[in-house]
């Protein structure tokens, strides 16, 4: 049986939790689907503790700082994944390296997708209540986007990269981004 693995990336800290929180919700959403496996990873290479094979599909979910409005969830193919502009001390084994390892081990990059939610770029601390509200919105946005991707995969067996497929599917599933001013 081909599986779809959803790996939430992150850590227990601040905005970096969003990938894990969304993965936790997705695990409950798809708990009745034996073909869907959800896990939270503190390091991307931890995915290899699963019996993952090149026949399987992978979605990495995470938070990101880009140029979109905070709370916007975006999908990337491995080719479209933006390079990390700042390298943190993680012993060099980041998402890009992990994807390169997967490709070297025979995984098709067409079966790897990254879904990330934009988080605020400012580093000023917010009041705890404000932060929790915004974090919940970001998690909800990420969860909704990945849920839509997974439902498409369950129906068609592929990721929805085709614009035609996406538009008709969106009309039927009504995926929304958080309204402006939420963050």
């Amino acid at each position: 049986m081909n599986r779809l693995y959803i790996f939430g990336l992150g850590s227990p800290y601040g905005w970096d939790q969003v990938g894990w929180l969304a993965a936790d919700q997705l695990r409950q959403t798809f708990s009745g689907q034996p073909a869907i496996v959800v896990d939270m990873l503190s390091r991307p290479t931890n995915l290899f503790s699963h019996p993952i094979t090149p026949m399987d599909w992978v979605i990495f979910i995470d938070s990101m700082m880009g140029k979109a409005r905070p709370g916007t969830a975006q999908r990337f193919t491995t080719l479209a994944l933006p390079p990390a502009h700042q390298k943190f001390s993680s012993h060099g084994i980041d998402l890009n390296t992990t994807i390169a390892l997967l490709a070297s081990l025979g995984f098709s990059t067409e079966k790897i997708q990254i879904v990330a939610v934009e988080i605020p770029a400012d580093t000023e601390p917010s009041p705890e209540q404000t932060f929790r509200r915004c974090q919940a919105l970001a998690t909800q946005s990420l969860h909704a986007e990945v849920k839509s991707c997974v439902e498409y995969w369950l129906q068609f067996g592929v990721y929805r990269f085709s614009t035609t497929h996406e538009l008709s599917f969106r009309q039927n599933t009504h995926v929304e981004s958080p309204p402006a001013g939420s963050f």
Partner: peptide, 17 residues
């Protein structure tokens, strides 16, 4: 490591396990 993994996939996967 990715370059090595193409020729030594079993060893790399063993190490990651």
């Amino acid at each position: 490591a990715p370059a090595m993994a193409k020729q030594f996939p079993l060893e790399v996967r063993r190490g990651l396990r």
